[in-house]
Design a protein around this nucleic acid. Structure first.
Length: 198
DNA sequence: GCAGTGATCATA
DNA sequence: ATGATCACTGCC
């Protein structure tokens, strides 16, 4: 049996598909750790950032979730199909980047809190030039903003779960451990062959 | 510790 | 039309 030829397109160049997001928000939030957020700049250059902090917003029953108070023009994207960006302005200054998860009609999403060197959800969007123009658009190459899968799994013991930030108004939902963090320095580096690099 | 900031939404 | 709220950040 001859060796497999090199893949024409390494797996890391295939965007995470819609199906990936059509699951519970907490599952997606955990599995996005270690994935890359990819943005295409105005000059066509691609910028990749490893995701290391996310939060899950579970749906209409989750009092911290925007969708729990019903559909409005601002949050309508959350009620749509999975795999689209949900972007809104917070405190009049900061764009928040989310990816919609789960079934159409159920308002759920994952907030991208930190990627690469950019710590904090407002800094992520500022650094990548993301604003409301991405809202409602699919995470895809066509849109210029997508995720690439991590190669190899993040060891579960490296993942920390905590309550979500800034949702103290949400009663018991404020305390649920729906924030997911991994220390980027402890993430093993994986090559396209799936082996740790020396 | 808290001011800045302005869209959004409920109330009227 | 008006006021409260807000999934944050940066400077005190």
């Amino acid at each position: 049996m001859p060796d497999m030829p090199p893949q024409a397109h390494p797996r890391r160049l295939c965007p995470l598909p819609t199906d990936f997001f059509d699951r519970r928000a907490d599952t997606v939030a955990r599995e996005l750790l270690g994935a890359r957020l990819v943005v295409r700049g105005a000059d066509g250059r691609l910028w990749r950032h490893v995701v290391f902090e996310t939060e899950a917003y579970l749906g209409a029953h989750d009092r911290a979730c925007h969708g729990s108070k019903g559909i409005t023009p601002r949050n309508a994207t959350m009620f749509g199909p999975a795999g689209r960006w949900y972007v809104y302005l917070c405190y009049g200054m900061h764009w928040m980047l989310n990816i919609v998860t789960g079934a159409e009609g159920a308002p759920a999403a994952v907030l991208i809190r930190s990627v690469g060197e950019h710590i904090g959800p407002g800094r992520v969007t500022k650094a990548l030039g993301i604003d409301r123009s991405f809202d409602g658009r699919p995470a895809s190459r066509a849109v210029g903003l997508w995720f690439e899968p991590r190669e190899g799994r993040v060891p579960p013991r490296l993942i920390e779960r905590t309550p979500r930030i800034g949702v103290g108004y949400a009663g018991e939902w404020a305390e649920k451990p729906l924030r997911f963090v991994v220390d980027p320095a402890r993430l093993p580096t994986i090559t396209s062959q799936g082996r740790p690099q020396p």
